[in-house]
Structures are given as C-alpha cells and as structure tokens.
Design a protein around this nucleic acid. Sequence first.
DNA 1: CTGAAAGCGCTTACAG
DNA 2: CTGAAAGCGCTTACAG
Lengths: 337, 337
Amino acid sequence: MVSIRDVSAAAGVSVATVSRALTMPDRVAKATRDRVLKVTEELGYHPNLVARSLRSQQSRLIVVLVTNIANPMLSRCIRGIEKLARELGYSVLLGDTQNDNLIEASYIRLLAARQVDGVILLSSRLHGRVTDLILKANPQAAVVNACACLDVTPCSTVGIDDVGSARVMTEHLLSLGHRRIAVLTGPEESPHSRDRMFGYRLQLRAAGVQFDESLVVSGEFTMKSGADAVDRVLAIPTRPTALFCFNDEMAIGAIQRLTALGHSVPGDISVAGFDDIEFAAFTSPALTTIHQPTADMGTTAMNLLHRRLSGEMQVETVTLPTELMIRQTTAPPRAEP
Amino acid sequence: MVSIRDVSAAAGVSVATVSRALTMPDRVAKATRDRVLKVTEELGYHPNLVARSLRSQQSRLIVVLVTNIANPMLSRCIRGIEKLARELGYSVLLGDTQNDNLIEASYIRLLAARQVDGVILLSSRLHGRVTDLILKANPQAAVVNACACLDVTPCSTVGIDDVGSARVMTEHLLSLGHRRIAVLTGPEESPHSRDRMFGYRLQLRAAGVQFDESLVVSGEFTMKSGADAVDRVLAIPTRPTALFCFNDEMAIGAIQRLTALGHSVPGDISVAGFDDIEFAAFTSPALTTIHQPTADMGTTAMNLLHRRLSGEMQVETVTLPTELMIRQTTAPPRAEP
DNA sequence: CTGAAAGCGCTTACAG
DNA sequence: CTGAAAGCGCTTACAG
C-alpha cells in the first residue's frame, strides 16, 4: 500500500503538508496543493482510514442497530441509510440484534471499541432504553431513532404519524359503511401497535361508533400470527365485516387463511394492512394499506445523524407523510339480509 | 475511555504485558495474567480495535457486497452472515451496490482504506469479475462468493445446485402430467437463471419431452415482471398447463395477474416458484417452490471466510441441499375435453 | 504557508 | 516471563 510518506517523498513536501493538502486544501499554497494532488493521483494514494480514525478520534463509521434485517420495512430503510451514508463518506456497520439484550449490549461495547461516530436505531420496544444505554457507555456518540424515541434521553427521531395514519385507515373503512371493524394488533411492547390502536379508537369515537373490546385480537406482526388470528376473528359473536391489521404481514396471513376457509375478501370481509411493503401490491387481491416512505425514513435518519455529527447539537424530530393506498381488499360490507 | 496504559499502571506491569495477557495468555505467568485480567475487569477496559487494527494490519472487519439488501433472499443470507461474524468477533460492513459498477468500485477502494480483512459477495452477474477487481486492488483480501463464482480468480464458494433443483421442479410438474410447461426466466446475465434453464431442459429431455422455444418467457426476477409476463404466457399458441417461474417474486406476480384475469391457479394453470422466500408459504393459494437454505448459506459463507482468514489457503466449494416444497399452486392439468 | 515533532492506542520483535 | 522501544499511518498544535 502506498502511504502518505510515499506521497510526501514524491512531492518533495512534508507529510504534514500532504495531509493538509488533502483535508484542508485552503491552508496550502495552490502550487503545493496541485503538486500534492497530482502525485496522489499518480501513485493512486488513498488515505488509511484506520490511521486517520485513531488519530482524529472519529471513524466515519456508523452502526445501524436493527431487530431483524430480513424484515422488508427495515431492510428498505437500511437501504436508504446506506445510500446516503456512502455519499456522505460514512460506512455502515450492521447490527442485527434479534431483539436480544445481550447482542444489543455487545454492539454497544463495539461502539467504543471501534470508535463509532453514531448510531441509528431501527428497533422499537416500549421498555428498551437502548438510547440511554448507548449514551451512558458512549457519551460522545450521536444517536438517531428511526422508529420512536421512547427513552429518557432525548434524541433525534424520524417516523410517521401512527395515530393519524390509523385514523385515516379507520375512516376509510367507516366510510365504506363498516361499523364492526376488528383490529389485529402487534405485540404489546410495540409503540407502533399502541399508537395505531389509539388512532383506531380515536376515529371510532369521532364517528360515534362505540369501541368494542371483543373486536380486538392480538398478533405478532408475522404472517403466521395473521393466519392464526383469523379463527379468533371469525369466532367473534356478531361477526365483524372488516379486519384492520396493524401491519401487512399479518394481513397477508389473514387473507390466505380467510381464502382457504372459503371466505371471500373483500366480499365476505374487508381486510386492510399497514406499511405497504412491496408484497402488499401483489397479494390476490391486492391489499389496501397505509404507505410508509420507508427508504425516505432511512435517508432522513442518516441526514439527522450527519447533522449531529457535524456539530449541530439540536435534537430534531421529523415526521414523514403516509398515504392511504386503496386497492382491492376493502369494499362496502355485504348488505344485511 | 480507559486505555491499555491505565491498565498497565493499575496492574503495575508494562503495557506489553497487558497486551500479552489479553491476546496470548499462555505467554504470561499465571499470577501476572490474573492480576491484569482483574484490573481489566475492574476498570472496564476494552481494547481499542482501531489502534489494534492499525498496528496488527488486520481489522476483523468484513464487507458484504450485495446487489440489494431489500431482497428477501439476500437479507436472510446477510442475517446468517452477521450472526456468525459476531460470534467469531468480526464486524460486518454493509455494501449495497445496486448492481452499479461505480458503487462497487467505491467499496473496493474502501477495502484497502479500512483494512478490511475479507469480502463476501452476494451479487452474481455473468460478466462481473468483481472477485478479480477486488483481488487486484487488495491482494491480501479473502473473498467468498455466496452466489456463483464466475470470475477468473478462483475463490471459496457456497451455493446450491441450480441445475439439479430445476430438474426436480420440472420433474414434479411432469409427474403431475404436464407436458407443456412454460418457464419464466430471470435476466440474461443471471447465472442462476441460466442454470435453472439448463436443468429444465435437461429434465424435459430425460422425460422425452421436446423442448419448445415458444414456452420460454423472460422476466426480471421482480413481481411486476411476473405479472407482466402472464399476458405473453397466455398468448402462447397451444397454451401451457404449467408455469415454472425461476423465482418466487415472479410467481407471486404471475399468480396475482392470473387470478385477476379470472384464471384459477392451479385449476387452469399450475404455477411454481423457486427460492421459498417467507411469503411463498402465504400466497393464496400457497406456492409450490424450491426451498433454499438461505440463512445457512450466510453462515456457511462466513465460515469459509473465517477459514481463509485463519490461514487456510485452500479454496473450497460448498453446495447446500434444496428441497421441493409442494404446496397448493401445482396440480394435474385439467383433463382434455 | 510549511515543517519537525508529538501522539492516537495498540502489537511485536528484540533483549534480558 | 517481562520490559523498553519501535512503529502502524495518520493529524495537529506549535514554531517559524
């Protein structure tokens, strides 16, 4: 590997000058700078980032902590992060925590060991306090939460309006004429699930429809849990005419099971999802859902992180717009006999 | 941050001894070692990996180069890689190349700049030569190909038997009584598509069924291309009774479009996929496909890389078994009228 | 504007 | 078995 020494020798200047020519060009005479740059080019010199990190105490390395990189929402979000990170000169270290506290802790240790500049959190649990843990161990680290900021320590956050979006979907179903709208929630510790539930209730009330506890069925945000929930939904005394699933995976599972049992969607029951993952547009029939700007969330998160790393000390919160995607799984309820 | 100096001071030994106690414990007297470890524990010392990298010329950092991290197969594979990498003490840097040569090149530069130890390739193009490029720029790097090794330079490889697996699926369709089996291929530059095509033709021949060029329709491995292909499939003169899609996404797209056009799957036409992504089991009806051990591929790739980084100089090739998953989208063809 | 020197936090021959 | 010293490749006050 060609090092800064080789460049300094070839250009006939000190290594300090080479370093300056490359990192603060305006503090070097034009003639010198040009010579250094020319030699740099000729020798194919690229600064050793490891050495630079050690000396400058910043690595241009960020960690993305995610509960499951195989989740379509999260992987798209990471794609957005990676793209902007690369453009801004950062590298992204992947940390798939599997929602495991030990793995999380091991990554928190890594932050210091690798002199990581910042962290983007893509995991949201109601009682996680990851941000707090990170900042306790790494007071200098910048943290951006791309899910929901639930810790004591404030940090920059990007997300959507879960409450409002759930209201929009609920209103869509109400406007079709549905009154008995079942919901399939996510796990209890999910802030998204909690907020969507809140939006659902809010909109029911706004429409003067009484909330009915028996219409609430709980799932795990997985396709299997969506399929499994169908039996419980169908067993609800006065059968609901619509099912609002708090994510697309559960909706997909539910549709499969409903169809397999001989129920027509949306003929017998309307089904709605949330997220608009890529597959949502390709179920049979195509799923009505709430679109989240997933890749945007990633780039926005990276943007917020970059700002903090550039000295911007203010904590910011960005809420991105969602969109109701009306497709084929929702329709007016069948007329009463 | 507490450094090796602090430990050496507190333990009353030289930094050299601290370093040895931690990295080659058997070259240090037991008493000394114990004292060092105790102090290390007490002070909460963790070695600075950046300094270690700079000095030892190895970073325990690997790069995963992937065409699209939002692809379900690839993200699951990465999950497998990350898990084992973490357990072995490596960190994984994510490189989403979007199949773009410039991005690829920027990551190849990064390899040297960050003193990356090795690379796992999760992108396969017939004429890519990424391996060659990497090794030209980083002769010391270890490369593992988790798709198909297509470059001049040999490298450790993990994959499945695409040809054999396609034969198995073709045989499944033949055994159901299908004779006119259309195929929906991937893009031309995909080695997987090429091999699956080969397997299909091989098995037709083995069964004494004449290959018919008009049954070949080409797609892009996307759901949309699967949906779009349906019109071309339906326009084939003597209409095929089965459609073998070379990945699940295209099968999902095809099923949606077929259903939307009023064709029953598998009543009017059988549809088969390849890969067994998570969604394959939850289409309506559930997709018959070839299961790939995706996460295994990831851990195996990491294993091969680790072996090479541990001095094992031999290039190895591992072929993982696949499995035919018979679900609901394939059935005997409708009896001739 | 430029250079000599110190130092980031480790590891590793080299002595003893 | 242990320590003093050199050095990995940079950056950055400090002088001039």
